[in-house]
Amino acid sequence: MNDLIFLVVSSMLFSIGLVGAVIHRSAVRVMISLEIMFNGVLLALLTLSKYFNPLGGSILALYAIALSSVEVGLLISVFILLYRRSKSLDVYEIVGLGE
C-alpha cells in the first residue's frame, strides 16, 4: 500500500510535467516541466528498484541526478544565447539556427 503511494505520486508528477511540456510555448517553462517529469521518473525508479536491485537503482539514480544537473546547466546556457540572438524564447519562433 505504501509503495503504491510512491508510484501514484510519481505517475502524477510525470503526467503534470508532460502536460506542462506540451502546452507551454516558453522554452524555459518546457524545461521546468521536463524536470518535473524527471523527478517523477526518479521516484518510480527507486520505488521499483527496492524490489529488484536496490544498489543498482541507487547508483543509477545518483548518475541520473548528476547528469540532470549538467543538462540543465547546458540548456540554460543555450537559452541565454538564444535570447541574446533572437530576443525570444518562444519554441515556435526559434527557427533558422542552422543558417
Binding site: D3, L4, L7, V8, S10, S11, M12, F14, S15, I16, L18, V19, V22, A44, T47, L48, K50, Y51, F52, N53, P54, L55, S58, I59
Partner: peptide
C-alpha cells in the same frame, strides 16, 4: 491528457509489483 497519462503510467508501474512479492533489503 494529464488524467489519461496518469492512469496509463500508473498501470505500467504497478504491474511489476503485482508479480514481485519479495523485497531485497540491501540499500546503498
Amino acid at each position: 491528457v494529464a488524467v489519461l497519462v496518469f492512469f496509463s503510467v500508473l498501470q505500467i508501474l504497478v504491474s511489476p509489483l503485482a508479480q514481485q512479492v519479495t523485497t531485497v533489503n540491501t540499500a546503498l
